[in-house]
C-alpha cells in the first residue's frame, strides 16, 4: 500500500477536493488491505472471540492475540447525521451527505462510521438495515466501505 505522503500531490493541488486520507499503522493496516480486496474485516480476539474496534494488537479483555476476520457486512443504523456544511474536506459536491454509525451484526456495540448511500437523507432513520458495499476513496489509493439500505432484517 502506498503511503499517504506518496499520494499527496493530488491533495496538495486542491486541499478541499479530497476527503481526509487514512494513515494506516501496524495494527490497522490489515483493515485497509482487506478493503482493497473488497472485504470488510474487523479485528477479533483469537482466544475469546471479542471483536475490537478500533483494532488492538492484543485483546483488551483477555490479552489474547488478535487477527482480522471478515464480517457479513450487514448492520443497523445506530445513529446518523446529515452533513450540510463543509467542515471537513471532500464530498463538497455531495452536500448534504449522510454519515451513520453502523452497528454491525457480529456484536452489540461494534460500530463503524460510514457514509450511507442510495437513500434520500430525509428518509434515513435509526434502526435502518444496511449492507456494506465497496467504493474507491477519492484520491485513488484506498477503498472504503459505504452502506446502502437493504430490505428486511
Amino acid at each position: 500500500m502506498t503511503t499517504t505522503h506518496e499520494q499527496s500531490p493530488a491533495v496538495r493541488a486542491d486541499p478541499l477536493s479530497l476527503p481526509p486520507q487514512p494513515v494506516p499503522d501496524a495494527v490497522t493496516a490489515p483493515f485497509w488491505a482487506a478493503l482493497a480486496e473488497g472485504r470488510l474485516a474487523m479485528c477479533r480476539c483469537g482466544d475469546c472471540g471479542l471483536w475490537l474496534q478500533p483494532p488492538l494488537e492484543r485483546c483488551r479483555r483477555c490479552a489474547g492475540p488478535t487477527r482480522f476476520a471478515d464480517v457479513a457486512g450487514t448492520g443497523t443504523v445506530y445513529s446518523f447525521i446529515v452533513q450540510h456544511r463543509a467542515t471537513v474536506p471532500g464530498y463538497l459536491d455531495d452536500l448534504p451527505y449522510v454519515v451513520a454509525l453502523v452497528e454491525l451484526d457480529e456484536q452489540t456495540g461494534l460500530r463503524l462510521p460510514a457514509r450511507i448511500v442510495g437513500i434520500d437523507p430525509a428518509e434515513v432513520r435509526c434502526g435502518l438495515r444496511v449492507r456494506a458495499e465497496f467504493t474507491e476513496l477519492p484520491g485513488g489509493d484506498f477503498t472504503v466501505a459505504v452502506f446502502r439500505p437493504v430490505d428486511g432484517p
Binding site: 481526509p20 494513515v23 446518523f80 447525521i81 471537513v88
Partner: peptide, 29 residues
C-alpha cells in the same frame, strides 16, 4: 471545522475518509 486535515491517523482514520471528523458532527450523532 478541519478543512486543512488531509490525512488522519489513529481512530480518525476510520471516520475521516467518510467526511466525519469534527466535534459538531460527533455530538450531532
Amino acid at each position: 471545522r478541519a478543512l486543512e486535515r488531509v490525512e488522519v491517523d489513529g481512530e480518525g482514520q476510520f471516520a475521516g475518509p467518510h467526511g466525519y471528523l469534527v466535534p459538531p458532527q460527533w455530538f450531532a450523532m
